[in-house]
Design a protein around this nucleic acid. Structure first.
Lengths: 366, 366
DNA sequence: CTGAAAGCGCTAACAG
DNA sequence: CTGTTAGCGCTTTCAG
């Protein structure tokens, strides 16, 4: 350790220990920068085994001995060395979270939920972001070594092809998937088809008959992606109501506001324009709202819009939408992970409810 | 290892090894689940030291020996045990990122930038989220043990009081702060005062004289927070232009869209309402835009609005704003961290430029 | 209830 | 260029 490091370590001690304990440390011959379990054992006059047991609330230590050890460790500012502990025990006290893109609403929100419960349980979070296809390949390549660093893996909104091993076999760790079902993983998924159907039925109930849809992109890798399922829900609702599916009322977006603006503009330009529109994401719905405004089409008087997500902005903008409660999904996923790690539960597939939240962008057909 | 674990490990091997290598493994007596450096050494007929050197591109191994070792490791699907490596070397190949709230735009975006460069450099990311004051306390309490798990710490948008140790001394690791200056840390900060001044000057240049401001909350802990500095910039601009600072044109928001709506509504109700408004965040600006729309005040004809952030939505909504390029800030911070870890650079304070981006919500006073 | 001792898998001197 | 060896700091049988 260089001079600078030494100084820093010394300063740090000042924060942690009072004068008495520092003197004491020297008295008992501890001069190192880093306090180890041996120091505590020496200071307490016991073996390292007893220290380890005491500090981890394991049985096999007398009450007064234990308390003394804890007090001393406290006073000396002892801190467990995570890597050493992990090497010896095989546990890591860390869970991995892989998600497509943290700069994006859904995964960020979910990550927040996951973190809040895991932090409380004393787990750290190792993150792996997959924005690009290259990242996805990298993940597959590095996944196994990544997984050695964690006790479990939470996959947010990531698809894993099921050819070959199931998820827990491949990663050799318990895994919980949020947003999608996954073979060999506990999952927390949304019934996208049903939810979309409900959204469109809301429009139908309001008396709308020319109902458009702004779609999100398909994922080529998957036979039935979120987008595809939501599209089926749209078809279901229209079909059940005896309404035709009009291809000119289907506009493709890419998930962004800008694409929502563009798609809505196209829809508004159709000969018989829709009086109601279902958007596969709130962001596109925001765009749709803006396009309507630009075109002078009053919402909800001349146009009803329903979104999907319940994005943070949805309430303020009065958007009627399907609520995903992503943060809560994250928390639930984290709790499930904790149980899986403890080995106290089997895998399970939970379908997350997506209620309709009616606000100000939908109204009965004028 | 229980039966289930054993099975999984076996299945996993199938993915990684072809038949030949599996037979070979048994031949040379390897029967464990986890392949260690010793197995590679045995298989290659060399010492573990040579394996370690070869795999880490360290000098001191003959070219053909090295290649043979690499091939064998590859064939056997050898994977470094991170904790063991870390325990022995003292390095962790991980950097910590602490931020207030990942569900929020600024930190999420920054995290994305940080991750992209760190991932490429082979570092993992350990995250620590501080949404609540309780989280902040927890961070201070656990920071030192958290830091043992990382080679460096990136603080996004977190304030640390400077009483007591400087940052690198306290954490005993290199730290880079993004968003704020911090004693003992490299920093990447924005000149909030100057940027706000520029925003308001833009309005002044456009001929506006009654210029309102929608403020973000102060942080009680700090004498001069982001919000306070931006307010000073507003005062600077008005002062220099010889315009009065009218307290009734100052409306407080909390950063949210909803608060922006409310604040703008208040401003619009003032006897001499502003013709231009500077919002301390884009989100509040979105709210302001909506309030104007609700009130039938055309933007930018009767009201100019300038925000601060260049939020993802700003472009689509045509908002004139001060661009922070948060993702790039994150990338720059990460690169700086890499250099600090390598020990090749001193701390530095970089002031990040915040250019004005003129879009459609500002225009000359009509 | 307590201690001794054998590792966990890898790195890094130090010899040869 | 290569091998030997002594740890890194903690956990966990196994004895006592």
């Amino acid at each position: 350790m260089d001079a600078r490091g030494r100084t820093l370590a010394a300063r740090q001690c000042i924060t942690v220990m009072d004068t008495r304990s520092r003197d004491w440390l020297e008295e008992i011959g501890v001069k190192q920068d880093r306090i180890t379990i041996d120091d505590i054992a020496a200071a307490a006059g016991v073996s390292v085994a007893s220290v380890s047991r005491s500090l981890r609330d394991l049985p096999g230590v007398g009450p007064q001995t234990r308390q003394r050890i804890i007090d001393i460790a406290d006073e000396l500012g002892y801190e467990l060395h995570p890597q050493a502990s992990s090497l010896a025990s095989g546990r890591t006290s860390t869970v991995g979270v892989a998600a497509p893109l943290f700069g994006t609403w859904f995964p960020s929100r979910a990550l927040g939920g996951v973190h809040s419960v895991l932090a409380e349980a004393g787990y750290d979070l190792l993150v792996f972001m997959m924005s690009t296809p290259a990242d996805r390949r990298r993940f597959l390549r590095e996944a196994r070594s990544f997984c050695r660093r964690v006790d479990g893996l939470i996959l947010i909104d990531v698809f894993a092809s099921s050819d070959g091993d199931s998820a827990d076999a491949f990663f050799n760790r318990p895994v919980v998937a949020v947003g999608e079902r996954l073979d060999g993983a506990a999952s927390l998924a949304v019934d996208n088809r049903l939810a979309a159907r409900r959204a469109v039925e809301h429009l139908i109930d309001l008396g709308h008959e020319r109902i458009g849809i702004i779609t999100a992109p398909e994922r080529a890798e998957l036979s039935m992606s979120t987008s595809g399922l939501r599209r089926l829900g749209y078809d279901d609702a229209l079909g059940d109501a005896g309404l035709d599916i009009n291809p000119s009322l289907v506009a493709a977006g890419d998930g962004s506001i800008a694409s929502g603006i563009e798609a809505m503009s196209r829809l508004l330009a159709v000969p018989g324009p829709p009086t109601g529109v279902f958007c596969m994401s709130d962001e596109m719905a925001f765009g749709a709202l803006r396009a309507a405004q630009n075109a002078g089409v009053p919402v909800p008087d001349a146009l009803s819009v329903v979104g999907f997500d319940d994005h943070d902005f949805a309430e303020a903008l009065g958007l009627t939408t399907m609520r995903q409660s992503v943060s809560e999904m994250g928390m639930t996923a984290a709790r499930k992970m904790l149980k899986l790690i403890a080995g106290s539960e089997p895998l399970s597939e939970l379908t997350w409810d997506v209620p309709l939240v009616i606000r100000q962008t939908t109204a009965a057909r004028g």
